[in-house]
Structures are given as structure tokens and as C-alpha cells.
């Protein structure tokens, strides 16, 4: 560099190419983007813009139900497989060993309207999330990272504790005893839901739940009956039935909230109100920078099923209402997509 160039640089102040700016001052980088008119995010989305979602259902041949959901650069595959949990071993419930194990479960299994207690207590729905697929540079094959585990737990809790999407009745395999005329529960379907992320650019929870719900909606289990001679559940190869998702659909929408108070202006006695932005559907970069996050889960009938807010002190009632309003819009979008399955 020659000396004249050096002087010029000092005169015009320090300049950096945008990628460097993004690296050394990510927060300011995001803020400057938001402050421009019209307010735009680094990904050139508007603050209130979700990434469009696409869905492919039942593309996999070995799962009973599957869905591929892509939201921008985040893509997940969810596969549902049913396996049979036999309640009877040998001569049945009367046998001591089996009876002991199922003593408390027997109370559970008779009641269908138990807010998902049977499904939860017996572990009939098994959701797992896998991020170690090379979906982004942060996660490696092997045991799941803390983030993967916590996201999987949030998802499990949403599915089983909050939403009760899958009623026990649809998983029950019953048998009408011709001799006594009583209907007995002989076995249960266990649904293994495996969610594999193949590309991750932020907001895994929204994509994972949407894929799970879509996969459940697309699931077709074989018709199963109890064969008294074989003492075994036998499935039909040709006949299938759809899973009854009486819990209705449910989707989450995640947001980030950014606030900025112009201190210079405040000193000059100017307008000192805080400027706030509600960002929809954060990508990887925004997720790292934004500290205040809101998750709204909307379920069938456009009711709020769950609302979580973490970190920060920016959001007021107005921003929260804004999140709920946008979550509702997102719910309608995704509902349209999944209903077509």
C-alpha cells in the first residue's frame, strides 16, 4: 500500500467489506440492516416474513408415514414407523411377572380420555431428533449435542405433554372374545417418530414439528387383529388405515425480538423511545445474535397451545400480541399445506 492510499483510508474512516463487518460486529450488522428503509434483514427478508415452506409426504418406502419439510435452507425428514407392543406374554396378564409390570399401566390403558396419560406413561410415541448428519458445520455424527437433546426434549414435551395429538384409542389393538363377548386390549401400536435434519439454517423446531405433524397425518398403519391361535398380532398386508389425529393440527412459530435505543439522540434531547423489531423465523446467523426469543404454538381452532419467551427485556405486551398474530397467520399457511396430505 502506498502512502497516499494510507492517508485516504484514515480520512474516510475505517471501511470493511460486508462479510467482515458481519464477522466482527454481528449485532451492529443486524441492526444496521433493520434500520435501513425499508427494514430488511441480512437474508433480504422483511422482518415479518417467514421463509416459504414446502412439503413432500410419503416419499419414503419403508416408513408407515413420512414427510419432508423445507423452510428456506432448513430441511428435515420425518419418518413414522409403527411397531407392536404386546401386552400378553404366554398365558397372559394373569401371569405374575407380567401382571406386576403392568399393574399401574392397566389402570391407564382402559381409559381413552386421559389427556394422553397412557401414551406418555407407556411410551407409545417415541420422537427423536437427529442433527448429526452433516446438516451444518456445528454438529458431528455421534452422540447428540446439548442443543440437539434440548430441542428433542422440547419437541417431545410439545407432542406428548401439551398437544396430545395422538389419542390412545387409535393405537389400541383390541380383540372381541367370542366366548365372553368382551373386548380386550391385546396390544398397542408404538409410533417411532424419527426426525432427521438434512440441512440446518436456523429454526429447527418449527420445521421439525411441521414435519412430524405432516408425517403423522400421512401415516397409514396396517389393519391389525389379534390371532388367538398364534397368540400374536397379525397385520394385513393390503389393508391400511389412517391414524386418527383427533388432537387436530398444531404448528409452532418462532420469533426474535430486537430493540434499539438511540443514545445519541437521547443526549441531544430528541426522541428517546426504543425502536423494536419482531423478526419471524430466524436463520442461523440471527439465532446466534438475537437473545430475546419467543415461540408460539397454535393448535386447531387457532388456540394458543403454548407460548415461550426467553431472554431479553425488550418485548412488551404489544410485541407479544404481534407474535401471536403472526403465529396465527403462519398456522393458517402450514395448515393449508398439511391438510392437502
Amino acid at each position: 500500500m502506498t502512502s497516499t492510499e494510507a492517508t485516504e483510508t484514515t480520512l474516510s474512516g475505517l471501511t470493511f467489506p460486508a462479510p467482515v463487518f458481519r464477522q466482527i460486529a454481528p449485532q451492529k450488522y443486524l441492526l444496521r440492516h433493520l434500520q435501513s428503509t425499508p427494514s430488511t434483514r441480512p437474508s433480504s427478508r422483511r422482518p415479518d416474513e417467514f421463509r416459504p415452506a414446502t412439503l413432500h409426504a410419503n416419499a419414503l418406502s419403508h416408513a408407515h408415514g413420512s414427510a419432508v419439510v423445507r423452510m428456506g435452507d432448513t430441511a428435515v425428514v420425518a419418518g413414522v414407523r409403527g411397531e407392536v407392543l404386546n401386552l400378553l406374554h404366554g398365558e397372559g396378564k394373569e401371569r405374575g411377572a407380567v401382571k406386576l409390570r403392568f399393574e399401574e399401566m392397566e389402570e391407564l390403558e382402559e381409559d381413552d380420555d386421559d389427556q394422553g396419560e397412557t401414551v406418555r406413561g407407556m411410551g407409545l410415541v417415541v420422537p427423536n431428533l437427529e442433527l448429526g448428519t452433516g446438516c451444518t458445520h456445528n454438529y458431528h455424527p455421534g452422540p447428540p449435542s446439548d442443543f440437539a437433546q434440548s430441542t428433542a426434549e422440547r419437541l417431545r414435551s410439545l407432542l406428548l405433554d401439551t398437544l396430545h395429538l395422538i389419542p390412545t384409542s387409535t393405537l389400541r389393538i383390541t380383540h372381541l372374545d367370542p366366548a365372553t363377548g368382551t373386548t380386550d386390549t391385546k396390544a398397542f401400536w408404538v409410533l417411532y417418530i424419527d426426525i432427521v435434519c438434512i440441512s440446518l439454517d436456523g429454526n429447527i423446531l418449527d420445521a421439525a414439528l411441521a414435519a412430524t405433524v405432516a408425517a403423522l397425518k400421512a401415516t397409514k398403519l396396517p389393519i391389525a387383529r389379534w390371532d388367538a391361535d398364534k397368540e400374536q398380532v397379525v397385520c394385513s398386508r393390503d389393508e391400511t388405515r389412517k391414524l386418527d389425529i383427533s388432537g387436530g393440527l398444531a404448528f409452532t412459530a418462532s420469533f426474535g425480538i430486537v430493540g434499539h435505543k438511540d443514545e445519541e439522540e437521547q443526549e441531544n434531547g430528541g426522541d428517546a423511545t426504543m425502536k423494536k423489531w419482531v423478526l419471524c423465523d430466524l436463520d442461523e446467523f440471527e439465532e446466534e445474535v438475537v437473545t430475546e426469543k419467543v415461540m408460539v404454538c397454535i393448535r386447531d381452532g387457532e388456540k394458543i397451545a403454548k407460548l415461550e419467551k426467553a431472554g431479553g427485556v425488550v418485548a412488551g405486551t404489544e410485541e407479544m400480541m404481534e407474535c401471536v398474530r403472526r403465529a396465527k397467520e403462519r398456522y393458517r399457511e402450514l395448515e393449508k399445506l398439511v391438510s392437502a396430505v
Partner: peptide, 19 residues
């Protein structure tokens, strides 16, 4: 580190006719 499912083993569907 993962959700494991029921304590008792589950079996894959047994079909009435061979594939």
C-alpha cells in the same frame, strides 16, 4: 440422550401373507 420408548420390547408388524 435419546427418547427410548416402552420398557418392554416392541416387534415389527407380522403380516398375514408373505411379501
Amino acid at each position: 440422550r435419546r427418547v427410548n420408548g416402552p420398557a418392554l420390547p416392541t416387534s415389527i408388524p407380522f403380516y398375514d401373507t408373505p411379501a
